[in-house]
Structures are given as C-alpha cells and as structure tokens.
Write a protein that binds this DNA or RNA. Sequence first.
DNA 1: GCCAACGTTGGC
DNA 2: GCCAACGTTGGC
Length: 152
Amino acid sequence: MAYWLFKTEPDTFSIDTLKTLGTSCWEGVRNYQARNLMRDEVKGGDKVFIYHSSCKHVGVAGVATVSREAYTDHFQFDPESPYYDPKSDPANPRWIMVDVDYERHLPLVSLAAIKANPELTEMVLVKRSRLSIQPVSESEWHTILAMAGVSA
DNA sequence: GCCAACGTTGGC
DNA sequence: GCCAACGTTGGC
C-alpha cells in the first residue's frame, strides 16, 4: 500500500464535499506527470491526504482511500466541462481518473507547519510544490498524522 | 531538438 | 492581485 497527496481547491471540491458524497471520482488532472502517477502507481487501497490549495487555510485537511484504479476521465470529451480537452481522441483518451472514498477529516496541518518541520524537508510538497498528485513516504505520512494529533 | 513565448499554478 | 516557478506550445 502506498501513500499520496491529492490537491484540490476547496471552493470547488473540499474534504467536506467528499464526506457528503462518500465516494467521488478525482477528475480534471491535466498534467502528464500527475496523470502518469495516477495511471501507473495509484492502486486500490492506497491512502491519500486531501490537500486544500489556493484558499485561506492551505494544508492537509483529511484522509481518503483509493477505491477504483485508473479509468477514462469522460470530462475530457464534454465541451461544457472546464476539463474539456478538444485534442483528446476518444479512441485513445489522454486523461484518466481514479475514485476515492472518504475516510476522515484531520485538524488542518498547514503548509507553513509542514515547511517548518525538519522531518518534512524532502516532501514533494516542499521541494516541488506544483505537482497535483504526489507520492508521500511512509515516514512523512506518519509525521503529518502525528502533527494532526492522530495516533494511527 | 532547441528555445522563446506564453499559460497555469498556487503561495503570499 | 502579484509574481516566481515551471509546464506546454510551436516556429525554426
């Protein structure tokens, strides 16, 4: 089982939205490196930090579990969708998504606190912040849970 | 295949 | 709203 961090803008989709839905697809990833991680490495049962970006309280806001592995993101073919990609060929879709199940909220672990923690200097979030789907190491995972005050 | 121009991300 | 970092596009 692997650990990940998925970014979302809470004004559009937040940990609260995911709790309400219970399960949701994670659509709209339009970056090749993030897509390749989702397509090749994100597996059912993997654990995911839900990270709130571009908002007042930036940071890790909750935990989800991967419930369905990569499948076609149909929003790429919908001209009404903000994720529409006219260059994607339906016979050979360019973009995929996964499904996640809500697991729990966390007391927010802020980006500032993550940056300030000497145990987390190697986190992708710290070193290369822009990637929207990121691997998280087991020790980083446990460090952040501990910062949230969660034992396991 | 290089690289300049341009677009997007995302913290502050 | 600014702007730095970085990804993508397209001419050559």
